[in-house]
């Protein structure tokens, strides 16, 4: 039982327990706090896999920026008084979810493992580092999607402002 195994089991147990908290908490604030716990555990898993850049970005973007969005909106909308979960969907969704999980496990174990491997072997990664390898791909082969992503962020920002603003009908001319 080395350090990688201990880190994997503790982070994955934390992630799964917090995910149950996200799905089944009655209070929405507890759901968001469990979401932060899940995100930090997933970030730990990324560090454990060796993806340092993605792990750091996960904390910076998800666990800080996106969760702050949710907290702001929850503090604006008054507390939801109704039932948290719908029992009639619960009865259907748990067996269906189990079937989907089995399908995902089957496909991922017997399907995609035999596809082609890339050039970034552990020796290359150990020489140049993970961050340099990722950004060399990001700024050469995926440069156009990167620019499109910034455009998407701009459009989403404008859309969020348009959707969330208060309609002020100022009819001064009449």
């Amino acid at each position: 039982m080395d350090l990688h195994a201990i880190a994997f089991w503790s982070f994955s147990a934390l992630a799964v327990l917090s995910a149950f908290g996200v799905v089944f908490s009655k209070n929405i604030v507890y759901s968001v706090l469990s979401l932060i716990s899940t995100l930090i555990a997933v970030s730990g898993l990324f560090f454990n896999l060796g993806a340092e850049l993605i792990g750091a970005l996960q904390i910076l973007i998800y666990a800080v920026a996106i969760v702050v969005f949710y907290v702001l909106v929850i503090s604006t909308v008054p507390q939801y008084k109704g039932q948290a979960v719908d029992p009639k969907y619960m009865l259907i969704s748990i067996p269906v979810g189990f079937v989907i999980f089995m399908e995902l496990a089957y496909v991922s174990i017997y399907g995609a493992w035999s596809s082609a491997t890339g050039i970034f072997s552990p020796e290359v990664i150990g020489e140049v580092g993970n961050i340099k390898a990722v950004s060399s791909m990001l700024f050469t082969k995926y440069l156009f999607p990167f620019e499109v992503a910034s455009l998407i962020l701009l459009v989403a920002m404008v859309g969020a402002i348009l959707l969330g603003r208060k309609e002020q009908v100022m009819e001064e001319g009449k």
């Binding site: 799964v16 948290a84 979810g97 989907i100 999980f101």
Partner: peptide, 19 residues
């Protein structure tokens, strides 16, 4: 896969739209 299915169950069963 487990987290994916949990999220799917959450989308199905929750009644609050923020959840």
């Amino acid at each position: 896969g487990l987290l994916m299915v949990l999220g799917l169950i959450g989308v199905t069963v929750r009644k609050n739209i923020i959840a």
